[in-house]
């Protein structure tokens, strides 16, 4: 194909992304630098406010915890799936994809049913006479972390399975025949070779948690505001467009830095990747 026709075929997509997406984004970023404020003045103001500072670091903390839990739950699961026979493997992947494709409203809502005042957990504990009055399990940071883990665990599992499936079975046998016990062989062979999957999974879960809106909106309370719910409040409740634009810009920068940082760290750890 001639180069000119290749570029020609890319023009519609370029217009869509390059113009229809880039223009509003640029305008948002530009707004944070406009007006009678010092350069980066709005960012300074954002961090001077203790509430905003809390929101910022809480968002990072929640995303980090979610990523760690998702990895801890997802890694063994993915290994199990990659070792299972073809029938089990399809079934297990199927069961991970179903929640993934289900609406995030439904998935967050399910935890309201579980953790709510009359939810399953409280009902069970009351029946067992462990408690007399329902516990307040919802609308805090923990319920947000649970909801986010639930939301993103399938992504972690699937990223890992994709990589683990391509690790040759013979490699584990080779390592054991050379004298490594299975557990050691696992750490010497499977772990380093599945690192790229873990990196992809971690990036997806971390950035997803960092920017997710539905779950903190439904499962979080006033004390667990995060950046995405804060943006919504600034823009749609307080009509503070400058403030919202500032947060928006920070979220973009944050997302990009996280992706870059994790990928760089991964490359440092594994020169083969």
């Amino acid at each position: 194909m001639r180069y000119s026709s290749v570029y020609l075929l890319c023009v519609p997509a370029l217009v869509l992304v390059g113009l229809l997406l880039a223009a509003p984004l640029y305008s948002t970023v530009a707004q944070t630098f406009g007006g009678e404020v010092a350069l980066f003045g709005r960012y300074g103001a954002f961090f001077e406010n203790a509430f905003n500072r809390d929101v910022f670091f809480r968002t990072l903390k929640i995303a980090l915890i979610t990523t760690v839990i998702a990895a801890a739950l997802g890694y063994p699961t993915a290994y199990f799936i990659s070792q299972a026979g073809p029938k089990w493997r399809s079934l297990l992947i199927l069961c991970a994809v179903l929640p993934l494709l289900t609406s995030s409203v439904v998935r967050s809502f399910s935890w309201i049913v579980i953790l709510g005042r009359k939810g399953s957990v409280n009902t069970l504990l009351m029946k067992l006479h462990v408690i007399d009055a329902p516990l307040r399990l919802l609308f805090n940071e923990i319920s947000v972390v649970i909801g986010l883990t639930y939301l993103f665990l399938p992504l972690m599992i699937l990223s890992l399975v994709g990589v683990m499936e391509n690790i040759e079975d013979d490699l584990m046998d080779a390592a054991t025949s050379l004298g490594a016990p299975r557990i050691k062989a696992f750490f010497a062979v499977i772990v380093p070779l599945s690192l790229p999957g873990l990196v992809v999974g971690a990036v997806l879960v971390f950035t997803g948690s960092l920017t997710s809106f539905t779950t903190p909106q439904l499962l979080g309370g006033d004390g667990s505001t995060v950046l995405s719910t804060l943006i919504f409040r600034q823009a749609m409740v307080l009509f503070d467009w400058d403030g919202a634009a500032t947060i928006a810009t920070m979220m973009v920068v944050l997302t990009l830095s996280v992706i870059t940082a994790i990928n760089m760290a991964a490359r440092r750890l594994n020169p083969a990747a």
Partner: peptide, 13 residues
């Protein structure tokens, strides 16, 4: 890569 809320807000604006 663009966070959904950022996109939504920017498009609205």
């Amino acid at each position: 890569i663009v966070p959904g809320v950022v996109l939504g807000f920017s498009l609205l604006r």
